[in-house]
Design a protein around this nucleic acid. Structure first.
Lengths: 216, 216, 216, 216
DNA sequence: AATGAATGAGCATTCATTCAT
DNA sequence: AATGAATGAATGCTCATTCAT
């Protein structure tokens, strides 16, 4: 179970650290939610796997849905948002020599490690975001306020630099995200058991994308 | 509800046509399954929306899961499989002047219409394929036996013609599918309410992909 | 299935003979009722085994309970009642040389054959008589009006003849029935798979009973 | 309701004593099962009569069938088995002056009290033993290992002493049990409302049986 | 007469949640 | 904080019965 590092970031980002029981509950919930889906998972099952009484879950999370949110919401704000921090973007702009290729290469490498580590929580998020407005709203907000404008700035920056073609930045953004997310889903969800030469695959993938976006 | 055309293909592909009640059940199930997910949907809810007694559902589909499968399984074999029929591939090979660009343009146009029509069933499939082995197995079989080898043939064909670059065909396949599916998901799931200039977006998307794959 | 002779006596005793479908329904019902009990048997199961539509059962028997009664009630009046017909009792009285031993030996032989033939219906009766007042009432009536007084007459007759001891005839009746029924239950229900030397067992059983009842 | 003494022996024989709610559930179940039969009794009916929520039944007994077994199984091992304990049999052998008549008289008296007390559970057992293999197996085991060999020893003992006739001990056993059980069923099931002079009836019944079994 | 689709009440069981300890 | 017994609404499913054909 690679989920026990959930603790680290949770504690590091919340005011109140998790108790030992909470830990076990969250670990168990992540495992079962990601395997069977939120709705098909019963609180008694979580309690059993966590080795706590069913009441304990409700003492901490009041409802089953709150348990879900408390797992998935911070994953969003803590993970998705900061992948384009101000400092990171600033750095991109400053590096005279930098390229869009370097930019997405950095991002992919960065996100790749993170997905590897938190696959279960991401699966849960990807499934449940369709059904829970709180998740959807929070995601849209995070995306439109944090990721989207910064990413667009970067794209425009490199377009102005003449590094990539002059189509609408939205299309560049979409193609880029589609390619990166497509790679990650192929790698971890569709064919997780393949023998992947990850470096090679990432290299080729980025190469094709950049070739498509490069001016010639 | 755009699901009433479910009837057409179902009837056209099954030996036994659906009765009026079955129709209503299937329509209602598709709508609610796609809105709330399979597990979170109750049979009583389906019955109520379909305007039939709950027992009627079980007379026709014996279990809730069978209802799901009877909706999603034929969608796979009837929709996903034939998008690369022999005749279609043969045609691709025969057209002297044809290009990989023409090929994927045809596919995208083709699939685009179909997705538009059957979005709900596809959503259900995409959600539930993770949790039901029958779906997963059937999908893998359909894909590995129908889609994968034919698609690969086409790619190799155009690589030999010198139309696209000589990376491993698997990577070309992955990039292509990722791009097409990414477009479709962006269009219909992520931002269905945007004012899309579909022709333009498709045009640009394909252009970037092909630029990335073209020899230069 | 030894139940197809149900037909014979049913037809011979009812005004309306059974149709072929009714026959199948009754045969199937007897088999399943005796195996699983009335309550645990579903009409759909009966219909399936009988090879008829479920509606057909209700066309003939209007309710599941009526089906039960139509099987069990005539078994009582036709089987239990006539085992002490007037002519039979008259015969007993006339035979100067006859004994109580001869009397019960005749009865046991007589009932033994019949039980062998109609075990399933008798099982059903024995189980369900506790739960259905109609059966209970009918049985009590049949017993108190037909069997009991005649049997008692016979006992008193042999007591007056000095053949058996002078305890209350009710006790003689009870001991006799208990012994006969006990033998039959042991033989057919408790240990049906034993290798029984039926003649010997019946001989010994009657011998012990008669020894107990004989004056000495 | 004479079933509240179910509690006593249950508690005295089980490691975990019953909670108050369990008690009520068991009492209610015994009453309704014995009135209507297991299959015809609904858990909601039991819950209502017991004054508990339906869920409470399943918290304690997980299935309706388990509830049945938890009522009937211990009745077998605790009641049926020990009626021929080692010490009892030993005592029979030691008493120089003892007779088969004394032996069965003791047993009948002993069992009579017990049946009077636990009639409902015994009714349930008698009905359901035909349909549930667990009950049948357990009963066969209890009988063949506990009751049968000891009883047979006793019979052979008295045959060797010349107290009873030299027919096969199995027949003696069958006649004896048939007579005792027949008496009890007549007394409590068939004619429970009669004014029984129990002592007289038992006396006469045993007298006839013993007369039949005595050497002369 | 026979069918079998349709019904809706009822079933055993599970569920998220509460609360006294 | 933690428990786990208790709840009762809800669930998926079955049932005996009806009825149009």
């Amino acid at each position: 179970m690679s989920e026990n590092n959930f603790k680290e970031w949770y504690n590091s980002s919340q005011t109140k650290p998790m108790s030992e029981k909470q830990q076990k509950i969250v670990d168990a919930a992540i495992e079962i939610f990601s395997e069977k889906g939120f709705s098909a998972t019963s609180t008694s099952e979580i309690a059993k796997k966590a080795g706590v009484a069913e009441g304990t879950i409700f003492r901490h999370y009041s409802t089953k849905k709150n348990l879900l949110l408390s797992i998935v919401m911070p994953a969003m704000t803590n993970y998705i948002a900061p992948f384009l921090t101000k400092s990171f973007v600033a750095e991109v702009f400053q590096q005279e020599h930098s390229s869009y290729e370097g930019f997405i290469r950095t991002i992919l490498q960065n996100r790749y490690d993170f997905v590897k580590e938190h696959l279960s929580v991401l699966k849960i998020f990807a499934q449940e975001v369709f059904y829970h407005d709180e998740l959807q709203d929070q995601f849209k907000e995070t995306f439109t306020e944090e990721v989207y404008p910064k990413f667009l700035d970067v794209i425009v920056h490199f377009q102005e630099k003449g590094d990539i073609i002059d189509v609408s930045p939205q299309i560049v953004l979409r193609m880029t995200m589609t390619t990166l997310i497509g790679f990650i889903i192929s790698r971890f969800i569709v064919l997780p058991n393949n023998d992947w030469d990850d470096d090679l695959e990432m290299e080729k993938t980025i190469h094709i994308l950049i070739s498509g976006l490069k001016k010639r």
